[in-house]
Every structure is written in structure tokens, then in C-alpha cells.
Design a protein around this nucleic acid. Structure first.
Lengths: 218, 218
DNA sequence: ACATGTGAACTGCTTCACAGCG
DNA sequence: CGCTGTGAAGCAGTTCACATGT
């Protein structure tokens, strides 16, 4: 029906769960492309992603009609579409604050850069770390973040500091004009409405497992 | 109404979102306890957790009536209750497979042990790593996991290996009788219905941010 | 005949609003 | 009077089922 090609305005609200599934589908499509599959049905994608074919079709239908009835979806075409939709066509410039274990692990993870997330800079408050380099990435004083952001643009800020410092770092990022924040600190952060945040709190995930175990008996 | 004290059987299904919020509430309650607050209202917990007071009360009401009308909840009592509900009264024995960055970071993270998650053993397939120790934790050959599990019980298995090895590790864990699996590999894993899994896929989280940025214009 | 795209039905979580009790 | 506990209403996401196009 509607075929969007570029910078996009969708009619329907996009559920968070749909965005996550689209990322999954994209992963499967990339594998299918590598193994030379020409087309794929919603049913196959559903099996791979642990969902239903109706769900796959609904997810895609938010953004347009990409399939051929009786056939399925062309793998290369759908791959391209999903990359566009997810904003993975380009490089995103990422500033990581916190040169501890998580921050460094992320900065070094090759898959991260391959997906288009380019770590431009690492920031830390510790004088021992400031001035060093990790691979080619300089570790700078966190107080320079705002002034640096005026010169080089950062799309995404990553908070990888202890819980008590998380809100301060978030405020600094907001002041620096960053509109998307990934928070790895086990703390709630508050930001203005025009800034997107996601918090990954591993403690919470483990406590959910603990809950499940404690109630297995049911 | 219903006041459960111990190994528990709830009447209502517990939404995943509720479990996550209970973990959050518990965190706030621990802070409130430290600062000597005697009682807390659903409204205060809601503000701290970024939700509504009705949501807080509904979350708690699944498990019983812990509050006093006109007053709120007694902080120490509710703290205890939530720990019970989440299964945090005891130590959980954790086996981590994959002595790479994520596996090691988790094994060394002090907050993890403080919450009752005790890393009993690290496993890896690489001969270079097997036989070494991290702090007091031995790194063992992954092929020993099943036989080790027969001797020392593991409650939770953590998958911290590359995507291609994730399903093999999951199968090994299932064979070893592990009923709860935390998966950090960017891969879907399939397990029997009596095994609980949670997947933390950071790539997906970043792609969700990418999606949000690409559609900020709206 | 086959697989998509989608309105309609359904399910389940959240919000509302108020009765009930301290 | 204040704040909890909870049915009832509202809403969002999922599933159903089928008309539609190839």
C-alpha cells in the first residue's frame, strides 16, 4: 500500500516490541542473504524469531507492503528496507562516558562498529585514565564533553559509570545536545521529553530469573 | 487479604513488567531504609520508579496486602516482603560459560555477589584459559559442565560466548539440569518449557536507539 | 494454490475512580 | 481525612481469519 523510501513519517505508533523484532528479523535476513536465499515467507521469519507469521506481517505492515502474495518477501529488498527503517544505513557517532569494564568492552567490541556505531570518544572523571588511549580512541576528561560536543557531533551517549554518577552524566549529555542515551548504570535517569533513553540493568534481569526460580513450584 | 509468608503460590499470573518494577521498588526501599524512613506511600515509590501510584498498588496487590490505609507501607516490612517474593533471601549458584570480557566482568562485579548471586565456576572452551583462576574462581573446560553439575548444584547458567556457540552451551546447560539461563549472546536460544531464559542483546538495544533517532523528525 | 495484508476479536496490562479502613 | 486495595473501564499489542493479489 504505502511504500516509503526515505526519511520517514509513519502513520501508526510503533510498539517497542515491534522494533525489537525488526532487529531480530534483520539479523535472520542477513544470514539468509549470505546463504543465498532469494525469498522468505513470514512463516519462516516467525519460526526463526520465535513468534507467529501474523505477528511478522503486522510488524512489517506498519511500514509498508514489502511482500508478494503467494511468494513471500525478497530477501535483499527486505534487508535493505529494515536497515532503512532502523536507521542503520549510516554511521552513528557514539560518546561513551565511563572507561571502566563496560565502557571499554563496548568500545572494543568489533560487532558494534560493524553495525555502524562508531565510538568517537571515551570520557572519564579519573585523572589516571584521562589522557590515555584505547586503540585509537582517546580518553578525555568528562568535563570536556559539552565543549567537545559543540565541535564534533555525538548522536548517542553511553552511560557506563556507577549508579550515583548516572544522573550527572545524563545531565551533561543533555546539556551537550545529545538526543539518545544508553544507560548501563543501575539507576533511573530523568531527561527532557525530546531525549530518548534506554536503560540496560543487568541486576534487574537476574532478579527476574531469581523470581522465576523461586516460583517454579508455582 | 492474603498474607503469604513462604514458598509461594500466587493466584494471578505475574506480568514480566511487574517483576521488573518490584526489583526497582526494592532498590528504592533499600535506600529509604538506609536514610531511616519508617513508612512510604505508593505515591512516593511511583515517583521514584517513574510510574503511577495505582500501578504500584496493583503490583503489590498480586502478592498480598502489605500496606496500612491512611499511612502507607512500613519500609522494613515491605523490603523483606519484596526480597522474599523475588527470591533474594538466599544465595543462587551461578555457572558462567565464556571467560571473555562479559563473563569475566560479571564474575568480578561485586554488586552481583552482594545480591546473592554467587559465581561458583567459570567455563571456557579455550585451552589457554582452562586451568587459570580469576580471583578464587577456577576456569574449567566447558565439557566438564554436565559432570560438575551432578556434584555441585548450579541454579543459574550464564551464556557469555559468541552467537554461534550459544545454542550448544544452552543445550549443555539443559542437559546439566540447569533451570534458569541468562543469555548474553546475540542469538535466539531454544530450551524446554521448564527452563526459563532471558536474553540481553545489547545490539538490539542500540538498534532501538538508532530507530528512535532516525524517526525523531517523526 | 499460496502467502500477504488487514479489519475484527481477543487478551492482558494499565489507568481510573471510589469504597473501605486506619 | 489520607492512602490503600480493587473492581471496572480503557487501551495497546497479539492473534484470528479471510479477502485479495499473484
Amino acid at each position: 500500500m504505502k511504500n516509503f523510501t526515505s526519511p520517514i513519517s509513519y502513520l501508526k505508533r510503533v510498539p517497542d516490541s515491534t522494533v525489537r523484532r525488526l532487529s531480530l528479523y534483520l539479523g535472520f535476513l542477513e544470514e539468509l542473504e549470505d546463504s543465498g536465499e532469494a525469498t522468505v515467507s513470514s512463516d519462516v521469519l516467525a519460526r526463526l524469531g520465535g513468534t507467529t507469521s501474523a505477528q511478522v506481517r503486522k510488524d512489517l505492515s506498519i511500514f509498508g507492503s514489502f511482500g508478494k502474495r503467494g511468494l513471500g518477501y525478497f530477501v535483499p529488498e527486505l534487508t535493505t528496507r529494515l536497515r532503512e527503517i532502523l536507521g542503520l544505513g549510516r554511521d552513528w557517532h557514539v560518546a561513551i562516558v565511563g572507561a571502566g569494564k563496560i565502557g571499554l568492552a563496548l568500545a572494543q567490541y568489533p560487532g558494534f562498529r560493524e553495525k555502524g556505531f562508531h565510538v568517537s570518544a571515551l570520557y572519564d572523571a579519573s585523572p589516571a585514565k584521562v589522557g590515555t588511549r584505547l586503540d585509537s580512541i582517546p580518553v578525555r576528561d568528562v568535563h570536556r564533553l559539552a565543549s567537545d560536543a559543540a565541535k564534533e557531533h555525538f548522536d548517542i551517549g553511553v552511560i557506563a559509570v556507577p549508579a550515583d554518577d548516572a544522573q550527572f552524566v545524563a545531565d551533561t549529555m543533555v546539556a551537550a545536545g545529545i538526543k539518545a542515551i544508553m544507560n548501563f548504570a543501575p539507576a533511573q535517569i530523568t531527561v527532557p521529553a525530546d531525549v530518548v533513553t534506554r536503560t540496560v540493568n543487568m541486576g534487574l534481569e537476574f532478579e527476574a530469573l531469581s523470581f522465576a526460580l523461586a516460583n517454579l513450584s508455582k
